[in-house]
């Protein structure tokens, strides 16, 4: 009985479906945990308690919120493009699930071993902006449309330094396979890419903060200027899906940063998936810390940071990496 079950597990199709189910469950739980953590971190930084009414230490607050979102009526505004309005939140969330497939959480837990894992993740994360555009346009609301326009110019700009820095790491490893990139950082802490490529790490973190529309780069949904930006007209679980997608993208980019720069599942002792998750959530805490520390930048400042600083720096970093790799080999 047991051995038969195990033999089913080794079938590629069963493996695929099983990993998809595990990823979906993980993303749901992750969303709930991150909402709670974000509120508590915000409260801590702003010297207030954060949620504390529902359950011990407010632990049940995100569950109550999720229930509220699930039970709310889904409203379509007048004059909205119905099909696209409904499709946009789904299109925002669906690609994230695929982004987790090649993630090497540990040598045992990899959804799908893939030679082009890095490109797969980059390709499917770039779909999010499309969903934001459709949401903003189909809502038939000027704030939504403005938010969508901002989302496009922001993410088109920040995708360039992101791709170039990731390319530098790929040059150095000579592979786009995430497992191989992790395997190249096994020789102790000092072989982690964060110490080999510190500039690339800084550029990567700034670029992904902008790509995931987090403060200080949250201009597409800047609540003090645009009500709520692209998701102004969304309520109930439509909004919930956008929210879930945002937190899922956060964990995708942090997991990729863990793989590229922090040695994946390797640790100073007891290497294993435990380290992968620890590093990923530590990076997420750093992103939250950013959010509640820096004020929102102006739009021209945002584009200047990208075009005048990040892109030239990342290009220099790429050329230097290529030169050094050529000399060392």
């Amino acid at each position: 009985m047991m051995s038969q079950l195990l033999s089913y597990l080794s079938l590629p199709l069963v493996h695929l479906i099983l990993s998809l189910v595990v990823i979906l469950a993980f993303l749901g739980v992750n969303g709930i945990v991150l909402i709670y953590v974000e509120r508590k971190v915000a409260g801590f930084i702003q010297r207030r308690p954060g949620p504390y009414e529902v359950g011990p230490w407010g632990l049940l607050q995100p569950l109550a919120d999720a229930l509220k979102l699930l039970s709310k009526q889904l409203v379509t505004p007048m004059g909205a493009d119905k099909i696209l309005f409904w499709a946009a939140p789904i299109l925002s969330f669906a690609p994230v699930v695929i982004c987790f497939m090649p993630m090497p959480v540990s040598p045992m837990f990899t959804g799908m071993e893939m030679n082009l894992g890095l490109i797969l993740i980059l390709a499917f994360t770039s779909l999010n902006v499309l969903a934001l555009c459709l949401a903003g346009w189909s809502s038939n609301n000027k704030y939504s449309l403005l938010g969508a326009a901002r989302a496009v110019s922001q993410s088109v700009a920040y995708e360039i330094p992101l791709l170039i820095t990731v390319l530098a790491i790929a040059f150095q490893t000579g592979s786009l396979n995430l497992s191989e990139i992790v395997a190249s950082q096994t020789k102790g802490i000092w072989s982690w890419n964060i110490f080999v490529q510190p500039i690339a790490f800084i550029i990567y973190i700034i670029a992904v903060t902008a790509e995931t529309n987090r403060a200080p780069f949250d201009l597409p949904e800047a609540e003090s200027e645009l009500t709520a930006g692209f998701h102004t007209e969304y309520a109930g679980m439509h909004f919930g899906l956008f929210f879930l997608a945002e937190y899922s993208y956060m964990i995708v980019v942090c997991a990729v940063a863990t793989v590229l720069f922090l040695g994946g599942w390797h640790g100073p002792f007891l290497s294993g998936p435990f380290w992968f998750i620890l590093k990923t959530y530590a990076l997420i805490l750093v992103l939250m810390w950013f959010r509640w520390t820096f004020p929102r930048v102006r739009f021209d400042q945002l584009l200047n940071i990208c075009w005048k600083w990040l892109i030239p720096l990342s290009l220099i970093n790429l050329v230097l990496t290529a030169l050094l790799v050529k000399i060392v080999r």
Binding site: L116, A123, S126, L127, L130
Partner: peptide, 30 residues
């Protein structure tokens, strides 16, 4: 040919169609 497939998604879907979208919005054809 997964490389070409992913490049198709990354470049055409992720970049070119987003630029087309931008062009439509800028030319005000609501």
């Amino acid at each position: 040919a997964p490389f070409i497939a992913l490049m198709q998604i990354l470049i055409y879907v992720g970049a070119v169609s987003v630029l087309i979208f931008f062009a439509i919005m800028l030319t005000r054809a609501p």
